[in-house]
Nucleic acid binder design. Structure first.
Length: 475
RNA sequence: CGGGACGUAGCUCAGUUGGCUAGAGCGCACGGUUCGGGACCGUGAGGCCGGAGGUUCAAGUCCUCUCGUCCCGACCA
C-alpha cells in the first residue's frame, strides 16, 4: 500500500492519496468522472439514510423525474437557462437518428419538476406540495476533482411549492437547518450559514442560503444550499392555483440540495497525515478487531476469543479482520488509513490477562481494558465521545481560522496566509467583490444575518458598509 | 477554456548522443518460515512503452496531431 503524502507539504496530493489508499473511489474511463468503490459508496449511503429521514420529517415525499429534459422546457426560465446552459451535456441523437428537439441531461431539475407541478397544482388545497428526489446530475465542469467536483454527481434535490412567501421562506430555512444538523450530527462538520450575495445566488432564485464548511487547508466548501425561487419559476412554468376566493394565484417555489461533494468535505475536514478519519455515526465500520497470534494452538484460541467479542457487540458495526496472510502491523495501518474510529487488538498476552487493547483513531490513545469491560454500552459511549470530540476539533479549527477585519491589508494578510474565513464589512458593490477576488482569489461566501455596526466602512472601497461578508478562498 | 507538469507492468518510477531479447521496487500468484506498528526467503505471472500519423536502415527515445491525468487560473455543488 502506498504512503500518503504529507498534507502540510502538498494538500491536493494528500487528498488524492487518501481517496486511493482508503479505497473510496477510482478514476473512471470517462473524463472528469469517478467510480464510487464500495467503501466510498457506503459513506454516501449513510448520508442518504440520515438525510432521507430528516427530509421526510419535514413532510417531504420522495419522487423521481426523468434524466433528460427537452430544450424547450429548460429554456422557459431565462436566468436559469443562462446560468446552466453553458455547462450542460446535450443529447442530439437517439435511435440512430438526429432528434427533432435536443434533450439536455439534467444539471438540476427545476424545469422538469415545475412542468409537472403545473399539472398537479390547481387549488390552494394542493399546497404545499413538497417533493424530493435522489438523483444524478451532469454539469460540464472544466476542472474536476474526485467528490469535490465531478462531471456527474449524486445528490438529493428538494422542490416545494407554497401559497405564500412566508411559507416558502420557512421551508428554505427549515431545509438549511436540516443540512446544518446533518453536517454537525452525522458528519461532525461545523458549518457557517448565511445568505449568498446577489452575484453568487442560484440562477433564477430570489435568494440563496448556504452552509459553508472549512477545509484543513483553509479553503471554504459549500455543504448544502437552499433557495427561495420566488414566483419566477411559477411564472415561467405557468403554475397557478385558485385561492379560497376563487382567484388565480402564483405559488412560491423553493429548491434545496446536498451532493456527494459532502464526502470530499468529510475528507478535508477530518483527514490527517495517516489518512481518513471517520466520525463514528457515518463510519461503515465503527470497530475493527485485530487478532494477534503465532501459528499453532494459540491461533484458534485468539480467534475464538475475537469471534466471541465480535458477537457480543450488538448494535455496533464491527469487523473482525481475520486475514491470516497479513501481519497485525499491516492491519493497524490499513484500518487507520480507512478511518475506522476504534480498534481492538487481542493477542495471547492479552488473553492471559483477560484483557484487550483499545485504540482510538481520533486521538491515537491506546489503553488496556478487561474483556468484561468491553461491553456494547461502553463502546457506544466511547463512539459518541469520539463523535463529539471530532466535531469539537473541527469547530476549534474553524474558530482558529475565522477572523474579523476592518482593513483591506488585514483581509489580504489572512487570505494570503493560512486562509480561513474572514469577516469584513462590505458595501454591497459587485465591483468591490470582484476587486478582492482578482487580487486575492477570495470570494464572498455568504453574508451575515446581522448588519454591520453603524458607521462601518467597507474594508476595501472605503464606502459605507451594507453587509458583513465572509471572504474565503473556496473549493 | 488559458498556463504548467506528466503518460513505460496493477502502483511508483528508471531507461544515456535513437541501436540488439524494455528494467527495478512495491503489489499479485504459489511454496515455506513468520505474526504485539506496513515480515522474510524462494519461484513465477504480468508490457504492441496512452492512441494515430510521420522522420529513419532502426523509435520508449525525434516531429505533428490526438486522448487522458495532475497542478495553477477563469466557471461552478
Amino acid at each position: 500500500m502506498q504512503k500518503i503524502t504529507d498534507p502540510a507539504k502538498d494538500f491536493p496530493q494528500w487528498y488524492l492519496d487518501v481517496i486511493d489508499a482508503a479505497g473510496l473511489a477510482d478514476h473512471a474511463p470517462v473524463k472528469g468522472c469517478i467510480v464510487f468503490k464500495p467503501y466510498g459508496y457506503a459513506l454516501w449511503e449513510a448520508v442518504q439514510r440520515d438525510l432521507d429521514a430528516r427530509i421526510k420529517s419535514l413532510g417531504v415525499q420522495n419522487a423521481y423525474f426523468p434524466l433528460l429534459i427537452p430544450e424547450s422546457i429548460l429554456q422557459r426560465e431565462k436566468d436559469h437557462i443562462k446560468g446552466f446552459a453553458p455547462e450542460c451535456a446535450v443529447v442530439t441523437h437517439g435511435g440512430g437518428k438526429e432528434l427533432a428537439e435536443k434533450l439536455y441531461v439534467r444539471p438540476t431539475s427545476e424545469s422538469i419538476i415545475y412542468t409537472m407541478f403545473a399539472k398537479w397544482v390547481q387549488s390552494h388545497r394542493d399546497l404545499p406540495l413538497k417533493l424530493n428526489q435522489w438523483a444524478n446530475v451532469v454539469r460540464w465542469e472544466m476542472r474536476t476533482r474526485p467528490f469535490l467536483r465531478t462531471l456527474e454527481f449524486l445528490w438529493q434535490e428538494g422542490h416545494t411549492c407554497h401559497a405564500t412567501k412566508e411559507d416558502a421562506d420557512r421551508m428554505v430555512t427549515d431545509a438549511l437547518q436540516m443540512y446544518v444538523d446533518c453536517d454537525r450530527e452525522l458528519l461532525a462538520i461545523p458549518v457557517l450559514t448565511g445568505r449568498k450575495p446577489e452575484h453568487e445566488k442560484f440562477a433564477g432564485a430570489l435568494y440563496t442560503l448556504s452552509t459553508e464548511a472549512l477545509a484543513k487547508d483553509g479553503k471554504a466548501i459549500q455543504a448544502g444550499t437552499s433557495h427561495n425561487l420566488g414566483q419566477g419559476f411559477s411564472e415561467a412554468y405557468d403554475v397557478s392555483y385558485l385561492d379560497t376566493e376563487g382567484k388565480a394565484q402564483r405559488p412560491w417555489m423553493t429548491s434545496w440540495g446536498l451532493s456527494t461533494r459532502i464526502i470530499g468535505t468529510l475528507i478535508v475536514t477530518h483527514g490527517d497525515a495517516k489518512g481518513l478519519r471517520l466520525p463514528p455515526r457515518i463510519a461503515p465500520i465503527q470497530v475493527v478487531i485485530i487478532p494477534i497470534y503465532k501459528s499453532g494452538p494459540e491461533q484458534e484460541q485468539v480467534l475464538a476469543a475475537c469471534r466471541k467479542l465480535k458477537d457480543s457487540f450488538t448494535g455496533i458495526r464491527v469487523h473482525l479482520d481475520d486475514r491470516d496472510e497479513k501481519s497485525p502491523g499491516f492491519k493497524f495501518n490499513e484500518w487507520e488509513v480507512k478511518g475506522v474510529p476504534l480498534r481492538i487488538e487481542l493477542g495471547p498476552k492479552d488473553l492471559a490477562k483477560n484483557q484487550a487493547m483499545l485504540a482510538r483513531r481520533d486521538t491515537g490513545a491506546k489503553e488496556a481494558l478487561p474483556l468484561e469491560a468491553l461491553t456494547p454500552a461502553h463502546l457506544q459511549t466511547l463512539l459518541e465521545e469520539i463523535q463529539s470530540s471530532m466535531l469539537a476539533q473541527a469547530q476549534q479549527h474553524m474558530d482558529l481560522h475565522t477572523h474579523h477585519v476592518s482593513t483591506y491589508a488585514d483581509l489580504k494578510k489572512h487570505i494570503e496566509g493560512e486562509g480561513g474565513l474572514v469577516w469584513a464589512p462590505w458595501d454591497g458593490e459587485l465591483a468591490t467583490a470582484q476587486k478582492v477576488q482578482e487580487e486575492t482569489k477570495a470570494s464572498i461566501r455568504l453574508l451575515g444575518e446581522e448588519p454591520p455596526e453603524a458607521g462601518a466602512m467597507d474594508a476595501v472601497s472605503g464606502k459605507p458598509a451594507k453587509y458583513m461578508a465572509v471572504y474565503a478562498k473556496a473549493y
